[in-house]
Design a protein around this nucleic acid. Sequence first.
DNA 1: TAGAACGTTGGAGTGCACTCCAAGCAAGCG
DNA 2: CGCTTGCTTGGAGTGCACTCCAACGTTCTA
Lengths: 164, 164
Amino acid sequence: MTVTETTGTGIRVEATTEARTDSCAGPPRADRRPDGEDLYTISEVAAFTGLTTHTLRWYERIGLMPHVDRSHTGQRRYRNRDLDWLDLVGKLRLTGMPVADMVRYAELVREGDHTYGERFELLKATREDVLARIAELQDTLAVLDRKIDFYADAGRALAWERTR
Amino acid sequence: MTVTETTGTGIRVEATTEARTDSCAGPPRADRRPDGEDLYTISEVAAFTGLTTHTLRWYERIGLMPHVDRSHTGQRRYRNRDLDWLDLVGKLRLTGMPVADMVRYAELVREGDHTYGERFELLKATREDVLARIAELQDTLAVLDRKIDFYADAGRALAWERTR
DNA sequence: TAGAACGTTGGAGTGCACTCCAAGCAAGCG
DNA sequence: CGCTTGCTTGGAGTGCACTCCAACGTTCTA
């Protein structure tokens, strides 16, 4: 069985062999076409995601993209679920997660439902990393603010100096 | 003139040609010796900062360290102000600031008081970057939490399934 | 005073995440 | 049809931030 989330409305249980989806997307994005007529060329996807076509092909080569459909002539035709996946990858990339770890997650998704536990653990560990990063950045922000205040004061002192 | 901050007590204006300090440190750290007897070997500094000795020498080569004192035989002898600087560099590194930009900041510090304005602007821009990074991470955290909730629910659904 | 541990240098090497290239096939348009 | 633009591939190249090396000098401990 596959458990599939339907956006914001809880979960739905259905019988299918489709183990490819990550089963959990966000709200639909504005620039997309509705499911069913969602076939995007690689350059469209590049425009949506901000990645280059090079990077999109590279992601596929290293196993970070879960097999993209092809046209009858072999060109890539991305679908909405691929954009969802790339959104997630983009988010994870922002956390500083190494590509190898994202590939690991992609493998777990490909392997099917029995990896739910491992995915769960991986996400929880990532969550902790993100919290730690945020804390670090807030620490840095405090240092920065202290220095900024200092230079603002110094600027005023120098301006005062010039009036003498 | 040089404006020097004395920790937490506002600013002090003094006549000196010393333009080397960044003029703005935080509270003293625990593992340090008091000023005056603050001479650390490169490996001590490596232990304090978590950087390798390789990296410390490399920072110096590329102009990211503002000239470290040497013993009579030419070995590096770091001082508290160097540790302060490395603390700041460590913080800026966490923000994802490229080393080249940090070198630029180091150059401004070396160039003296007339770069205060530019330093101020650089720090403010960095501050904005950090705020943006924090916002991104909080966004990512929301996505992560949504997925974690999903997998937690899915785990419960599968457990329920197994009881049938 | 021996030996281990630590320090010095310039230059070369590493790992990551892209980024580009060449040569060729595919698609849309006047 | 010809032209331009876009897509395909494997493999090579790039930029960043270290990371290591060899060959040697210094400092510390027994």
